[in-house]
């Protein structure tokens, strides 16, 4: 044991360990929330990430082709090719239709909010160990993204930037209990902040606590951002109320909310890097 502790290998291990810990300390005190070695690796491996993400997106197209070919295996070769070709076109058409819908929504958001400055960003990764659906986007500080910038998909709020590297950033979604968003229900104007809990997050839900027992908020109501705090702009859609539950902790109720977008199904999002009334508050959400 003594010989092992005095070995070169163990000394190298301690040196690297100390360097990594120093990197972690630097990350903790910096504005980017990202360790220097992670930022460097992110810059080097950025193209690889984008390539793998593109492959992943194409794989869903491949499965459609594969299914079509398999089910028509007995048909003539020419007919199969024709079907595969048409399937390809259909996939492209559906993709284009989806993109068009997305850009139309963004155009609508932009028209309603001329002060918004967007950066479009592909979703390039997800941490398999994270249960709260944190995502890595393919845009970073080089593109003007900063910690606490809101992330949207159409008119829907997805989450907030939690750390930034030069070419990537990480976002916490509405399903992360650390993310709090000032919000109100549009018909009753009852407000508070939307957050989630460990258990609700696993069901893909969040909640609006602090409602009075006799609340007029009903299932199906829409909850939007209030803009209070200056982290999120006003009137981005968070989601719809699923149910109203009596809070066992006190005499209030809370609304269980289903977010408007499925964080697990996103390929592209927009980061709002600037908007009227934005503050430079640090930390996740408001």
């Amino acid at each position: 044991m003594r010989r092992f502790l005095k070995s070169t290998g163990f000394k190298i291990f301690l040196a690297v360990f100390a360097a990594l810990l120093a990197g972690t300390v630097v990350a903790a005190v910096s504005n980017s929330n990202s360790a220097p070695q992670t930022s460097a690796a992110g810059t080097v491996f950025g193209p690889l990430q984008r390539f793998s993400s593109a492959i992943s997106n194409r794989l869903s197209d491949f499965s459609i082709n594969f299914k079509s070919s398999a089910s028509l295996a007995q048909e003539k070769e020419e007919l199969k090719n024709q079907i595969a070709d048409l399937t390809d076109k259909l996939v492209d058409y559906e993709q284009a239709k989806q993109d068009l819908k997305l850009y139309e929504e963004f155009l609508g958001v932009k028209k309603e909010n001329p002060s918004f400055v967007f950066v479009s960003a592909p979703v390039i990764g997800r941490d398999p160990a994270d249960l709260f659906f944190a995502l890595t986007l393919g845009k970073g500080s080089l593109h003007g993204v900063r910690v606490n910038d809101p992330v949207i998909y159409g008119k829907y709020l997805v989450g907030v930037v939690t750390s930034v590297m030069p070419a990537q950033c990480k976002i916490g979604t509405l399903l992360d209990p650390a993310v709090n968003v000032g919000a109100y229900e549009i018909s009753t104007r009852e407000g508070g902040f939307v957050t989630t809990t460990g258990e609700l997050s696993r069901k893909g839900l969040c909640r609006l606590p602090g409602l009075v027992k006799t609340t007029a908020v009903a299932p199906g109501a829409t909850v939007v951002t209030s803009g209070i705090g200056g982290v999120f702009p006003r009137n981005l859609i968070i989601g719809k109320v699923n149910e109203i539950v009596d809070d066992p902790a006190d005499i209030s109720s809370y609304a269980v909310i289903e977010p408007g977008v499925d964080a697990t199904d996103l390929e592209d999002v927009f980061v709002i890097v600037s908007f009227e009334g934005q503050s430079g508050v640090a930390g996740a959400g408001e």
């Binding site: 360990f17 990197g23 992670t38 690796a41 997800r126």
Partner: peptide, 24 residues
């Protein structure tokens, strides 16, 4: 170290945790 640093790019955990763990 290589594996951990690459994992850290995507990680939602504490900064540098994967590099320290996988190197170990």
């Amino acid at each position: 170290l290589l594996a951990g640093v690459v994992w850290d790019i995507y990680s939602a955990g504490p900064p540098g945790l994967n590099a320290v763990m996988l190197m170990t």
